[in-house]
Design a protein around this nucleic acid. Sequence first.
DNA 1: CGTCTATTTGAATGTACTCAAAAGCGGTGG
DNA 2: CCACCGCTTTTGAGTACATTCAAATAGACG
Lengths: 194, 194
Amino acid sequence: MTPELVLQNIGKHIALTQKEAAYFVGLLKEEEVPKKGFVLKEGQTCKYISFVHSGALRAYHLDQQGREATIMFAIADWWITDMYCFINNQPAMLFIQAIEDSCILKLSRDSLEELYVRVPKFERFFRIIMQGAYIREQLRVIQNLSLPAEERYDRFLSKYPRIAGKVTQKQIASYLGITPEFLSAIRGNRSRGK
Amino acid sequence: MTPELVLQNIGKHIALTQKEAAYFVGLLKEEEVPKKGFVLKEGQTCKYISFVHSGALRAYHLDQQGREATIMFAIADWWITDMYCFINNQPAMLFIQAIEDSCILKLSRDSLEELYVRVPKFERFFRIIMQGAYIREQLRVIQNLSLPAEERYDRFLSKYPRIAGKVTQKQIASYLGITPEFLSAIRGNRSRGK
DNA sequence: CGTCTATTTGAATGTACTCAAAAGCGGTGG
DNA sequence: CCACCGCTTTTGAGTACATTCAAATAGACG
């Protein structure tokens, strides 16, 4: 796996010298994750933030009644982790699982701290990443509060068409906060024209 | 109003020299906002991110049916803005209104960009602020998806006791994503011991 | 092929909403 | 200081959106 994609991802927001790029790449750990393999399980220490080089991952939370709530999907060119636990060194609340065979680049918390010191431009890079993540979550909260399930489904499809093609309806339902049965009903109405 | 509180807020994450602090303070614009006054209205350009020096603000979104969804509350020592619109120069989606007489310090987008260039430590500061905001929103999404209204209410009270004391039930209901009538019913059950 | 899981369908149920009206509370002006 | 007005909160009846449970069908994978 060449590090081109991740360097390109970073290049969208900051410019690195050859040396800086080489140093950064040296901090990354490659990992191949087979479909259904776990990058993180609840209760483990979340040591890494991961860049998805190829494939697709899903982060979800299991509640007391054993129901899954999908927190996010990540396809190629996205970053994913259990941010709360990564930052606060807490046992993970989330499972992160491969939806298809995937290839990721992991950056540990310690490496990241070192990176911030050695190449402060990365403070900017991750400021922009965090900002984007915050905005997306906030838009999601607004939509969850103010739109009915059917419209949330529409918006999901139009906002994330590439993801929609890779995941099951059950997973979409758990992202939208509804049951698979109800999502099926929504789709049923729709195809019958009403 | 002395700038001590905001400097202390920043001092939690980065250390500034006298000069840097003075430069930063020079970028801020003070504003007194009376109870029920607006810091931002939907459709306006959101030019500022605001630090709450005293008082309390509420950000909310109005949907097509005219229902309010409360996005966040901010009391002294918090930062607030319509982040999506602040960052992307879009017309505001949110109203930001004072819940009580408040005093805020506003930092414009242009000033902030300049600040990032002149004092790059602020990249770190806002990286940490954004990170915290992202984590809070993500936890909120998890709880909205996996907890019933009654438990979300409990958690709100225990997580934000200082806010709970300042706001109406109607506002709490709109933060939790339920109607005021239903929140009232929850509270009714509770006081009757069940 | 056969097994496992995802999806669909339908009936019964529950959680939360709407609408309406009464009661409470806070602020304002006479 | 009290009376009134407007808004919040409570209460209740009827309703709607979404869930649960169960079973049938369809797809994916070894």
